[in-house]
């Protein structure tokens, strides 16, 4: 790792201030950032840890019924405590491994927006709201391609608000080495319609499968997508799977997610 200054503020305000320095970088659970630093693929002048800020942690249900998760809440805590949204808790419980889940955070995952990460599928599939130190961003506006988000320099996610659906499920098909999603599909049925979000598959990062959403909104059954297919164009191709394979998995896993949602 390159050398850097390390700061561990205890309030959001102090964190924002610390991040205003040139080449400052926020550090949440660090489960992706620290390996990246070890490879010297990033060279921040200052790391600002967000894990000592109490107001960034915790899970609650808002008056409108939305599940609100503090950005620095660990995957393990979401898995254990997000009982109001079982599909989300189940998703959190499948990220990485137990030790990673004890450190990794929802805010860190969403800020990084790895194209194979799980949380982006949940956020987009739930139509979540990403709350930052300065504004609220709808999930549909937030994800802007691989590792790209709507966040500005120095902007900190403080909370993520998930409208709780009637039914939902996430099915993850693991890449055998990294155990990230080779493809993961999050399906959520709301009164206003069904949302289907896919991670791992596309070169553009997490995306919504509009045709499946339409079909499932009129008939929420695995068979409803029988006639649909996903094109291989724009799908990721690597030694773990061709674009065609990933496209195929999107459909298989969507059907399984619908079946699992019940």
């Amino acid at each position: 790792m390159y050398a850097f200054d390390f700061e561990r503020p205890t309030t959001i305000a102090d964190a924002v201030k610390a991040l205003s320095a040139e080449d400052a970088q926020a550090l949440s659970g660090g489960q992706t950032l620290i390996p990246t630093l070890k490879q010297r693929l990033a060279s921040p002048s200052r790391l600002v840890s967000l894990t000592a800020i109490p107001e960034l942690k915790g899970i609650c249900v808002a008056d409108d019924g939305a599940l609100c998760i503090g950005a620095a809440t660990s995957h393990a805590d979401v898995a254990a405590e997000a009982t109001a949204y079982p599909a989300l808790a189940a998703l959190a419980g499948q990220i990485g491994d137990p030790a990673v889940r004890n450190r990794g955070t929802i805010g860190g995952s969403l800020a990084n927006n790895d194209p194979s990460a799980c949380y982006p599928a949940a956020a987009l599939g739930s139509g979540a709201t990403i709350v930052t130190d300065r504004r609220k961003i709808a999930a549909d506006d937030y994800f802007q391609g691989m590792f790209e988000t709507a966040l500005d320099e120095g902007e900190i996610i403080t909370e993520v608000r998930f409208p709780v659906p009637e039914k939902a499920a996430y099915i993850k098909f693991e890449q055998p080495a990294s155990r990230f999603a080779l493809v993961g599909v999050f399906v959520a049925k709301y009164a206003g319609g069904v949302r289907v979000a896919v991670t791992g598959a596309s070169e553009d990062g997490v995306f919504r499968w509009a045709e499946a959403e339409a079909a499932l909104s009129s008939d929420f059954s695995a068979g409803a997508i029988d006639g649909l297919s996903v094109g291989a164009d724009g799908m990721i191709g690597d030694l773990h799977g061709t674009p065609e394979y990933r496209a195929h998995l999107v459909k298989v896993l969507t059907a399984r997610a619908v079946a699992a949602a019940g």
Binding site: P176, A177, S178, R179, D238, L239
Partner: peptide, 13 residues
């Protein structure tokens, strides 16, 4: 080497 770490070289778990 495309499989230069445990991210791409699948070790049995």
């Amino acid at each position: 080497l495309l499989t230069g770490s445990y991210m791409d070289y699948a070790m049995p778990r």
